[in-house]
Amino acid sequence: MKPAEKVRIEPALEAISLEKTFTVRGGLPGSAAKKVHAVSDVSFQLQPGTTLGIVGESGCGKSTLARLLLQLIEPDAGDVLLDGSQILQTRAGLKAYRRQVQMVFQDSSASLNPRLTIEQSIIFGPLIHGVDKESARTDAHELLTQVGLEPTLYAGRYPHELSGGQRQRVNIARALALRPKIVIFDEAVSALDKSVEAQVLNLLNELKAKLDLSFIFISHDLNVVRYIADNLIVMYLGEVVESGSVDRIYENPRHPYTKALLASMPSTDPEERTHEAPIVGDPPSPIDLPQGCRFAPRCPSAEAVCTANAPAHDPVGAEVVRCHMADPVSGHSLAGQSS
């Protein structure tokens, strides 16, 4: 999002301070229930026609966030706004919402019912929403053509007869069958091999322009995100640590975690190869979160203030950096220097 476009266009999808904790019950009855902070205080705006990338290590709450956005699980706090308005938490309201927001899952084979043909899988959604069978079938065939699968060859096939790339195309067609405005991709290309991945990414960009879609693209592959996304959210332990435009973040990352993530990207240039991992260790358990900044235990520039207080941030701004070093008044010795 360029700063010039400050005139407020209603974001296609907006998350406001989403929170989700899961309760893990202890082994013995009566032992204290533990809370896993899967997503805490996540806000973002998805502008119409753009792609929002979400990156982070495994376990950082990316998939929980996707399920929250789809309303498959209920947030403990916070809101999801579609075109600026609240989602009615009624059966009809959710059904209408689900028509607008669809998801493509990571595992292409687990996300297709093995007992249904490709065509049956694609028309399942439209039939639920009262589209008559004939036009749903016509639509399905058209969608198959659009994702590059010849309907006469593939419509009657079963998922196990298709390759991973073909199945993921079917999943894309299935998600598009409800004519949504927003499609969430949860690691949707991670399981594909590189050449197929490139084909699918190009297909997505094509479809986005043709069908006027907005994407949320969850991935741990930074190269893929850079290629496809316009804006980016970097998540760490359920929190947004940095957000902004892709170009800005890749060229000038401001949060030490983002820097470390980008530094860990494998380079194709032999001169640039690094031998040391930019960050070591595992993220702390989301059950016992560190007191101050969640990244402090692994941060190379952590100081006393980092372990004492959680860094403040502007919750709705397009550019978020949740770090004491980005806050001139935080008291960190490097404050204000990094930007």
């Binding site: 399920r67 789809l70 498959l72 059966r91 959710l94 059904k95 689900r98 028509r99 927001v101 669809q102 998801m103 899952f105 990571q106 595992d107 687990a110 996300s111 297709l112 019912n113 093995p114 007992r115 249904l116 899988s121 399942f124 959604g125 639920i128 929403h129 999943n171 299935r174 409800l178």
Partner: peptide, 26 residues
């Protein structure tokens, strides 16, 4: 626990439809 059940729910299908179409067959 499989994704296609979740996908069906995300399409707005009710529990009975999901059981009938996606669970029973499997």
């Amino acid at each position: 626990a499989l994704d296609f059940v979740e996908a069906a729910r995300a399409s707005g299908a009710g529990n009975l439809t999901i059981i009938r179409v996606h669970v029973l067959g499997n």
